[in-house]
Design a protein around this nucleic acid. Structure first.
Length: 430
DNA sequence: TGAAATGTTGGGGCG
DNA sequence: ACGCCCCAACATTTC
């Protein structure tokens, strides 16, 4: 007779503390087996030394270490999720399966398939809101439709947040005795088919957030929080973070609301992944020159601010937010390359890659998105450098050869600006 | 979360 | 003292 169990399926919520789905799982009537699946459908497209896989692995190991202290362990599987679940459902007497909701198109489809599978096997499948304060359909216009402009969305979001006092936090610790006792073996990274990356996710740093508004635009200050990968993989709780941000800094809180804005945009308008949010921009004739794109990717455009940003990305998996705007504007407007090329490159390189924010922000920069930058807004990389890296210390950090006589710009700014505005003007469908 | 072009104002040099 | 010009500084408009 097999023991009846509840499964909690970790995905991008890799923490034991303040985890909504886990909290509920630990209150179910059965011992809880924590599970993570290295999803082959996602992993097959990644390089063997992908830094994010290393980070996921390390985060799981940390969870496992804590579980060991209560004689439990996390079950690690690798494969196609449906295959893994079919096998688990025969191997264990699973009564309940709980997980936290994921709002990306691939995940929605996957989760609905797994839920059906679980239910066909006579078990209960339950999902919870954990990644956001307010999910789709919680913040809508009075007619029930989703907001597509940030400021009214933010106002409604804040109104609702303050109405509820603050976001509830879920204390799982007192429930830890409900984890099933077991001794699952924790695999080596190589057994999952990956190698350790030299690029590392850094610990988050909230010490400078009090001055966020004043310091956020200056990449040399290194006053960034380094939170984004932790939000992506759930190694910090959004509820704790938002409650903290609300006390400390409203400008920083506003950035967290942008994250939720784009998550609900992706949910309501999933076509934004592969299409312009505004079809009026479909007629723009991109140059999409491969050689130009390579220079952008490698950080050899001859514009120091652009090149420093791309080199920071290539070497570390991070890029300062201000510089992201500069490089994105440069790709779309100076080089006339479709934002989707840039989006794909960021997706490959960024440690904090999140589909909703990546697509949302790229479309913002390209001017094709909801509440986007107008087409005639063209960043001047030299002026951005003067304004935000006056002493050139950010640039010198990532371009050591800068003082030895730097490359000439690959394209003249004034020429490229005029060309961008003319090309957009011509391409916009009225 | 822009930058350039164009317009306006006012102080100072100068005859 | 006055008018004129120049131009920097700031404001507004345009892309």
């Amino acid at each position: 007779m097999k023991q009846k169990v509840t499964f909690f399926w970790f995905r991008r919520d890799l923490r034991l503390e303040d985890n909504v789905g886990l909290f509920h799982a630990l209150q179910s009537d059965f011992p809880v087996i924590p599970l993570f699946i290295f999803d082959e459908d996602i992993l097959e497209n990644l390089p063997k030394n992908d830094a994010r896989v290393s980070f996921i692995y390390d985060s799981l190991q940390k969870i496992n270490e804590e579980l060991k202290t209560i004689e439990s362990a996390i079950l690690i599987k690798k494969g196609k999720t449906a295959e893994v679940w079919k096998s688990l459902l025969t191997q264990f007497d699973i009564q309940k399966v709980l997980f936290n909701k994921d709002y990306e198109p691939y995940a929605i489809k996957r989760d609905s398939e797994i839920s059906s599978l679980v239910q066909q096997n006579g078990a209960v499948s339950l999902s919870y809101k954990d990644h956001v304060i307010f999910e789709e359909k919680e913040i809508t216009k009075s007619d029930g439709l989703p907001y597509t402009i940030y400021t009214p969305y933010k106002n409604k979001w804040l109104e609702k947040y303050h109405l509820s006092g603050q976001a509830p936090e879920y204390d799982t610790k007192p429930l830890f005795s409900n984890f099933a006792k077991n001794q699952f073996e924790f695999p080596e990274l190589s057994e999952i088919g990956f190698e350790r990356s030299s690029i590392k996710v850094l610990p988050h740093n909230l010490t400078q957030i009090a001055n966020y508004k004043e310091t956020r635009d200056f990449p040399a200050l290194d006053s960034t929080s380094y939170l984004s990968p932790h939000l992506r993989f759930g190694t910090v709780s959004i509820r704790k973070l938002v409650n903290w941000a609300n006390k400390k800094n409203q400008t920083f809180l506003s950035e967290l609301i942008w994250r939720e804005f784009f998550i609900q945009i992706l949910f309501s308008f999933p076509h934004v992944v592969n299409h312009n949010f505004k079809p009026a921009y479909d007629g723009i004739e991109w140059s999409n020159n491969e050689e130009d794109f390579k220079r952008w990717c490698s950080g050899t455009t001859g514009y120091p601010m652009v090149d420093a940003g791309m080199r920071q990305l290539n070497e570390t998996g991070y890029m300062h937010n201000r510089v992201r705007m500069v490089v994105a504007s440069f790709l779309c407007k100076h080089l006339l390359i479709n934002w989707q090329w840039g989006e794909a490159y960021f997706a490959e390189k960024l440690l904090d890659f999140e589909l909703a924010s990546n697509v949302g922000n790229w479309q913002w920069a390209a001017g094709t998105g909801c509440d986007a930058a107008p087409y005639f807004r063209v960043f001047n990389p030299e002026i951005q450098q003067k304004k935000f890296d006056e002493k050139g210390s950010y640039i010198r950090k990532w371009i050591p050869e800068f003082d030895l006589g730097y490359n000439a710009p690959m394209v003249d700014h004034a020429f490229a600006r005029d060309r961008a505005i003319a090309t957009y003007k011509k391409g916009i469908i009225k």
